[in-house]
């Protein structure tokens, strides 16, 4: 049982989130401003904080900064501000994730789960680097067993999808164009089939990402190609 602190000046939102999280089995602490949040953090053993940015008195950014001075608990920011700048600001202040309002409850839960897993399990387990295991962040590909795990969750992929993902993960951080991926995965030139690559990649993204439109691992560099983000644990 993990403890999650939800902090938002909008009571209904706090209530809704707590309903979702309770269903997932989390113990939810509610606070409606920064001050209350601090009190709870000081009092309870909190594993994750969901924090609204725009709050009266002390705003979310300030709260994050203060928490970061003493604790490393994951913080997910919630905000109606969807601008890139806002996201960057939030993340730079020490937040681990950023969710824009209005959010999809499922996405919220998935992100909360992911953050908790990372904080509790991944953070503790040092995955041994083996020849046939490719890893980036929470994405682990075991080439021996042909198994793919995203944040401890098993993912089912088709052989083609698996090959593409394996190739990209093996060369994480590098960008490959459709043609390059095709050539490397199929290992021969065959014009015309390559169009399917893009479709495959979308399918992979839909399977491994919480929000395929804002992918964490399999990123689309538009007009250039695709890459697997190199995430250090």
């Amino acid at each position: 049982m993990y403890n999650v602190l939800v902090c938002d000046d909008d009571k209904e939102i706090v209530e809704a989130i707590s309903i979702y999280l309770s269903k997932e089995g989390y113990k939810v602490f509610k606070s409606y401003n920064g001050k209350e949040a601090f009190e709870i953090i000081g009092r309870e053993d909190i594993h994750l904080i969901l924090l609204d940015i725009m709050m009266p008195k002390i705003d979310g950014i300030e709260v994050t900064k203060r928490i970061r001075q003493t604790k490393v608990i994951p913080i997910i920011m919630l905000s109606a501000k969807s601008e890139d700048e806002d996201k960057i600001n939030g993340l730079n202040s020490g937040a681990d994730d950023y969710i824009t309002k209005p959010f999809n409850p499922l996405e919220l839960i998935a992100r909360v789960n992911s953050a908790i897993r990372r904080y509790t399990i991944l953070g503790a387990i040092q995955t041994e680097e083996k020849d046939n295991i490719y890893q980036t962040g929470g994405l682990i590909i075991n080439d021996d067993t042909k198994q793919v795990e995203v944040e401890t969750k098993q993912i089912k992929l088709t052989p083609t999808e698996y090959n593409i993902l394996k190739f990209l993960t093996k060369n994480k951080g590098k960008v490959y164009s459709i043609e390059q991926i095709y050539e490397n995965v199929w290992e021969d030139e065959c014009y015309g089939v390559e169009n399917i690559i893009a479709v495959h990649i979308r399918h992979i993204r839909e399977k491994i990402e919480i929000n395929p439109k804002e992918p964490k691992y399999l990123k689309v560099i538009w007009g250039i190609g695709y890459k697997i983000e190199d995430i250090k644990v």
């Binding site: 164009s177 459709i178 390559e194 169009n195 479709v199 979308r202 689309v220 538009w222 250039i224």
Partner: peptide, 14 residues
């Protein structure tokens, strides 16, 4: 690369 972009987009909407 516009060609790449178009292929990618097409993949997204296939």
């Amino acid at each position: 690369n516009l060609g790449e972009l178009l292929k990618q987009v097409r993949g997204e909407f296939e």
